[in-house]
Structures are given as structure tokens and as C-alpha cells.
């Protein structure tokens, strides 16, 4: 690397990037074996899920998605989902779309498993909150592409690296909205829990988390959206899926292929967004099954009510 020259400035060269790289190399050398294991685990998980998604006939799975959308939200989303999925099949983008979906699902699960406990911790400790805040700012505002370099160095080209970059990129909203949701729970309601002698753990489980659920679910929704956008970028480092198609179209200037891939991403994004957004706005306090049962037993007049 050439030495940076600063002839007209009294500010000395501050090569943060170089320092980070040095540190990163040492880190990599130390934990190389661990990362190999991690790569295998992630690849296996994604391959497994992708295998499941690829197994049934596309149309059957499309119908399954439509049914899920109908159950969770309403028949309109169900119908829209069916139309969208059929479009993807028609554009011959089904296989890459399922690869992308697998990455998004696994990345989302990992981001939530890491993010929600961190959010809870931050909500209960001001110190943790103060430390996490700049870290989350850093993760959220760093351009997504930047994460590709270190992950390729750690995991080499392939789906595992793309996955890790996706998790890093998508982690912040899970932490933030969980913390926010818990902190927003009415102080007096939490006091009521304490006043009746409930343990902090019970209050978290029975009061704070259920009441924070809409906010947490909004976080889940954002994590999914960010995962999707990053999973596409992950195509740059060899992750299979729609990103790969888009990159291919870029290198061959294939406009048709580019739009096919792009539109498939849009359809997938809308599907996932509407699906998870409706879970977040669900009325608190009622079990999912009970709500589903109500949906089937409700009279038409009642279903017209908001």
C-alpha cells in the first residue's frame, strides 16, 4: 500500500483502515479454524433450508405462501402473493428466489437470536444501552459493501460470507426496536408487577415483552427487509440467489435478466414486508391460534369491523 502523502497539512496521517486491517489479520490468524467450522455450519443450514424450498413443485409452494398470507392477514394479500409467486415462476426466477429466501430466513433468525437479547439487556441497563448505541450506529450506517471485504477474507467466496455480512448489516433494528419497545412500556404497569412481588424475570416475560411485542415485531420486519437487500448485494461475493442473477446481468449488460431478477426481489420484499408487518400490528393479548380460529368463525358483519 502506498504511503499517504499530506504535503500541505499539519494533520498527521491517520490510517485507521490500515490499523483495522492489521488487527483483522491477527484476528483471522488466531481464529481461522473456528471460522472454518462456522462457515460449514452456516452453509449447511442454508443449503438445508434451500433444499426444502426447492423440493416441492414451485406452484405447490406458491400456493402454500398464498395460504400463509391469507391466514396471517387477509385474502387480498393471499391473492397478491399467489399472483406475485406465479410471476416469479414465469420469469424463471424461482430457484434463485428460493436461494435468496433461504439466506434471508437464516440471516433473520440469527440476527434476532443475537439482537433481541441484546435489546433486552440494553433496555435494563443504561450502561449497556450507552455502549450499544454507537456500535449500532456504526453497523447501521456503514455502507453494506464494506462488510463484504472482511467476510470474504474470513470465509472466502460463498454463501457463508454473504450470510455473515447480512446478519451484521441487519442486526441494528432488532436491538434498537426491542430496547425501545421495552422502555416504552408504561412505567406504572411495570411498577404494578414489582408491587405484587413478581421477579424481574417474570415481569420481563409476562409484562414487558408482550407489551413491547408490536415494537419488537416492527424490528423483525426491518431486519427482514435489510436482510433481503443485503442478501442481494451478497451476490457480489458469490452467494447464490437473485443477487447473483442481477450481478450476472450487470456484467453481461443483459437488461431483461436484470429486470427479471429485480422484479423478483421486489415481489419477495413486498410479500415478506406485508406478512410480518401484519404480525406486528396484531392486537396484543390474543393467541395466534385463537385469532385464527376467530377468523374462521367470525360472521361477515364482525369481520367488517376494524
Amino acid at each position: 500500500m502506498p504511503e499517504p502523502t499530506t504535503p500541505l497539512s499539519i494533520v498527521p496521517a491517520i490510517p485507521i483502515g490500515t490499523w483495522l486491517e492489521t488487527g483483522f489479520e491477527a484476528f483471522k490468524d488466531t481464529f481461522d479454524a473456528a471460522f472454518d467450522v462456522l462457515r460449514d455450519v452456516i452453509s449447511t443450514a442454508i443449503d438445508g433450508l434451500a433444499g426444502v424450498l426447492h423440493a416441492p413443485d414451485p406452484l405447490v409452494l406458491a400456493l402454500g405462501f398464498a395460504l400463509l398470507a391469507w391466514l396471517v392477514r387477509n385474502w387480498k394479500l393471499g391473492l397478491g402473493t399467489l399472483v406475485g409467486m406465479v410471476l416469479i415462476i414465469g420469469m424463471d426466477m424461482w430457484d434463485p428466489a428460493m436461494d435468496t429466501l433461504a439466506i434471508v430466513v437464516v440471516a433473520t433468525v440469527i440476527a434476532l437470536v443475537l439482537g433481541i437479547p441484546l435489546g433486552i439487556w440494553a433496555a435494563r441497563s443504561t450502561t449497556v444501552s450507552r455502549i450499544l448505541k454507537p456500535v449500532m450506529d456504526f453497523l447501521q450506517t456503514m455502507p453494506g459493501f464494506v462488510w463484504l471485504v472482511p467476510v470474504v477474507k474470513l470465509f472466502s467466496i460463498g454463501v457463508a460470507g454473504a450470510m455473515v455480512a447480512t446478519v451484521i448489516f441487519a442486526l441494528a433494528p432488532a436491538v434498537r426496536l426491542t430496547e425501545l419497545g421495552i422502555r416504552q412500556v408504561d412505567k406504572e404497569v411495570v411498577e404494578a408487577g414489582h408491587a405484587f412481588g413478581a421477579a424481574p424475570r417474570q415481569i420481563l416475560r409476562d409484562v414487558q415483552l408482550p407489551l413491547a411485542l408490536p415494537s419488537v415485531m416492527a424490528g423483525v420486519n426491518q431486519v427482514i427487509m435489510l436482510s433481503l437487500s443485503m442478501a442481494v448485494i451478497g451476490g457480489l461475493v458469490g452467494a447464490p440467489g437473485l443477487g447473483n442473477e442481477v450481478i450476472k446481468s450487470l456484467s453481461t449488460l443483459d437488461l431483461a435478466l436484470g429486470f427479471d431478477g429485480g422484479i423478483s426481489v421486489v415481489i419477495l420484499a413486498i410479500f415478506l414486508d406485508r406478512l410480518t408487518a401484519s404480525i406486528g400490528t396484531r392486537r396484543p393479548g390474543r393467541g395466534r391460534l385463537r385469532e385464527l380460529r376467530d377468523r374462521f368463525t367470525r360472521t361477515p358483519a364482525a369481520s367488517a369491523a376494524p
Partner: peptide, 21 residues
Amino acid sequence: LRRLRRERISMVFQHFALFPH
């Protein structure tokens, strides 16, 4: 502290503080 609260003392709040869920 929790045992004392459970056995001895309960509370009614100004804004009810019911669990909405």
C-alpha cells in the same frame, strides 16, 4: 422484598396500571 410484597402489601394505581394484554 418480593416475599414481603406478596404477603403483606398490594397496591392500586392512579392510572390503574392494568396489564392491557
